[in-house]
Amino acid sequence: MGIDVIFKIAGIGIVTAVINNILEKSDKKEIATLVTLAALVIVLSLVVNMLGDFFGTLKAMFNLY
């Protein structure tokens, strides 16, 4: 639990951009959009898990609901 999550998200962003460029050069635009979608889903699940723990700690700390 630290900065590695941020680096992971940045890395996924950069890798997707590179893959998109390659796919566009070899004129396979539809696969490029699929790659972007896949990256978005991966990062979304990563961040949603983190937000789940985040709200869990908050709930435990301030004994909300």
Binding site: V5, I6, A10, T16, T36, V47, F54
Partner: peptide, 25 residues
């Protein structure tokens, strides 16, 4: 990293502040 991701992949740049907020808390 937000600056980097913003011009490389704008639609993924929304997740960075979220992750940072969670880590800081």
């Amino acid at each position: 990293s937000y600056g980097v991701v913003k011009n490389v992949k704008p639609d993924l740049s929304v997740f960075l502040p979220m992750a940072a907020g969670a880590i800081i808390l």
